[in-house]
């Protein structure tokens, strides 16, 4: 079982495994793997804490009812799976400011924290507008040959390449 403690597996093997896993998800649950919906369930649950039942009148939360269901369980599994995997290979470690970020923007945790929260905000907003993320559109949708998902995957990376170039090369000078 030494392969379980390896730090890295071949990306092709991992990709093939994820392809099979999407099929397993279709077979057992009749649904694709997608990660971004869990975040909107969480946001609805959070808003319910402050606003109570008023949240249920929001048009968007009528479509994505705030509750702990399949998507939230899936995302909890992802956290757990990566925890087990990194634990087995000894790469489990607290990371506050990654090295690559430090090279461009220094080791201030505050600066990294603000950029991470801001980046997360755009990610959450954009994923809801586009109707999915790298897993829901980018893998599960594209493999069904959905037009929407191929366009989404293209735009995710087009935006990603462009803004990464601006942030890390132009501004950060890495």
């Amino acid at each position: 079982m030494s392969w379980l403690v390896l730090t890295r597996w071949s990306p092709y093997g991992v990709g093939a495994g994820i392809g099979v896993l999407v099929l397993v998800s279709f077979i057992l649950s009749n649904r694709p793997i997608g990660c971004s919906t869990a975040y909107v369930r969480a946001s609805g649950l959070g808003e319910e804490l402050f606003q109570g039942e008023k949240v249920q009148s929001n048009e968007y939360y009528k479509k994505f009812v705030p509750r702990i269901g399949w998507e939230v369980a899936l995302l909890a599994g992802v956290v757990l799976g990566a925890l087990i995997s990194s634990g087995l290979s000894g790469s489990l470690a607290v990371e506050t400011v990654p090295e690559l970020w430090k090279a461009g923007f220094g080791s201030s945790f505050l600066v990294r924290a603000i950029s991470a929260i801001g980046g997360g905000f755009l990610l959450g907003f954009g994923a809801r507008m586009a109707g999915g993320c790298t897993s829901g559109h980018g893998i599960s949708g594209t493999l069904q040959l959905a037009v929407s998902s191929w366009l989404a995957l293209f735009c995710f990376f087009l935006g990603g390449f462009g803004v990464a170039y601006l942030i890390y090369i132009v501004v950060g000078g890495i």
Partner: peptide, 30 residues
């Protein structure tokens, strides 16, 4: 919305350095 949302998503992906699924995984690794 797919084009506009997708580009906003890409910007967030670049600034944060993770996408929604890998983000959850990264939380698990610390």
């Amino acid at each position: 919305p797919i084009i506009v949302g997708g580009l906003i998503f890409g910007a967030g992906f670049a600034l944060l350095g993770y996408c929604p699924g890998t983000l959850a995984g990264a939380v698990g690794t610390g």
